[in-house]
C-alpha cells in the first residue's frame, strides 16, 4: 500500500496542471465532498466544542471530574484496554493460523471474523447477555466457579472483546501475508530455533500492525455503546461506561453536562485517531522497507 495518497501517475505523467485540466469534474466532486463533510461532520462536531465554550470553566471542570464521571472513565479506559490487550494476543493467534496454516473450515472462519462488524451492536448485546447471564449456557459454568460474567465489568470486557476482534485480525493478516519466508528460512539455516526466529524476526515485523490493531480495538471499545449496555447492568460507579453517562445526562435534559463529557471523549478520540494514523504510516513504511 502506498504511504502517501499521491499516485504514481503524478511522477510519470507530465505536469500536474495538465492533469487538472484534462480530467473534468474537480469543482463538482470537490464541492459535493466539502459541502457534505462540512454540513454533516465539521459543523456539528464544532458545535460540541462551541457548546462547551458556553459553560464556565468551573462548571465544565466539575462536570467532567465528578465522582460518577471519573468512575466511568476508569471503567471505560480500563476495560477497553484489557479487551484490546486480549484481542492483540488472540487476534495475532487467529490471524497467524488463518494465513499460515491450512485446516478444514479455514475459509469459513476467515469470513466469520468480520461478524462483529456486520452484526448490529444491540443484537450482539442481547445475545452475549443471554449466553453469559447466570442461567445462560456459558454463564452457568462461570457463576459455578464464582466468576460473575453478566452485569459486571467482566461482562463489559466480553462485549468489548467481541467488538474489537476483527480490528486486530484484519490489520495483521495482510502484514503476515507479506512476511517473506526466506528471512525465516535464513534464520533457521543459520541455526536459530523457531522460538528465536519468532522473537527476533517475526514479532518485530508485526509490532506496528499489532499496535495499530490494538489502538483501533481500544478506540472502538471506548466509544462502544450498544453491545455494552445490555450486559453491563449499568450500575452507577461500578459498571457505567462513559457513553452511557452522556446518554443519562441527555435523558435528564442536562445538555451542557452531556456536552462537557462528550468534549472530553472527542478529544481522546482525536488523539487516538492521530496516533493510529502515525502507526499506520509506520506499518506501511515497514512494509515498503521489506520489499
Amino acid at each position: 500500500m502506498p504511504t502517501s495518497l499521491a499516485t504514481p501517475a503524478d511522477a510519470v505523467v507530465a505536469p500536474r496542471r495538465i492533469n487538472q485540466r484534462v480530467i473534468p469534474g474537480f469543482g463538482l466532486s470537490m464541492g459535493i465532498t466539502m459541502a457534505y463533510l462540512g454540513l454533516l461532520v465539521i459543523i456539528p462536531l464544532a458545535g460540541v466544542f462551541l457548546g462547551s465554550l458556553g459553560m464556565t470553566w468551573e462548571h465544565f471542570w466539575n462536570t467532567v471530574t465528578s465522582r460518577q464521571v471519573m468512575a466511568s472513565y476508569r471503567v471505560s479506559f480500563g476495560v477497553s484496554f484489557a479487551a484490546a490487550l486480549v484481542n492483540a494476543v488472540f487476534g495475532l493467534l487467529v490471524a497467524w493460523i488463518l494465513v499460515r496454516y491450512r485446516f478444514p473450515g479455514r475459509k469459513l472462519i476467515d469470513g466469520m471474523v468480520d461478524l462483529p462488524f456486520a452484526l448490529p451492536t444491540a443484537v450482539a448485546g442481547i445475545a452475549l447477555t443471554a449466553l453469559y447471564a447466570r442461567t445462560g449456557w456459558i454463564g452457568q459454568f462461570t457463576y459455578f466457579i464464582g466468576l460473575e460474567t453478566a452485569y459486571s465489568k467482566t461482562g463489559i470486557f466480553i462485549a468489548l472483546t467481541f467488538i474489537g476482534l476483527p480490528f486486530v485480525v484484519r490489520t495483521l493478516q495482510p502484514v503476515i501475508e507479506d512476511l517473506d519466508p526466506e528471512v525465516e528460512e535464513a534464520a533457521a539455516s543459520l541455526g536459530a530455533s523457531r522460538l528465536r526466529a519468532w522473537f527476533t524476526i517475526i514479532l518485530p515485523a508485526l509490532i506496528p500492525a499489532l499496535l495499530t490493531g490494538f489502538a483501533l480495538a481500544f478506540a472502538r471499545g471506548l466509544g462502544e455503546y450498544g453491545s455494552v449496555i445490555f450486559i453491563s447492568g449499568n450500575m452507577p460507579l461500578r459498571t457505567e461506561i462513559t457513553p452511557l453517562i452522556i446518554v443519562k445526562f441527555l435523558e435528564q435534559y442536562q445538555y451542557a453536562e452531556a456536552t462537557a463529557v462528550a468534549t472530553v471523549m472527542l478529544v481522546v478520540s482525536f488523539l487516538l485517531l492521530l496516533f493510529i494514523n502515525l502507526l499506520q504510516r509506520w506499518t506501511e513504511s515497514m512494509g515498503q522497507a521489506r520489499r
Binding site: 499516485t7 492533469n19 456539528p44 452522556i246
Partner: peptide
C-alpha cells in the same frame, strides 16, 4: 484519486472521523 491538491491526507482523515467518534456523540451533535 483523480486530482492532486494540498491537504489531501487531511481530507481523508476527516472522512474517517465518524469511525473514531462514539455513536452516542454522533447522536448528541
Amino acid at each position: 484519486t483523480k486530482f492532486s491538491f494540498r491537504g489531501k491526507s487531511l481530507l481523508t482523515t476527516v472522512i474517517d472521523l465518524p469511525f473514531a467518534v462514539s455513536p452516542v456523540i454522533a447522536g448528541l451533535i
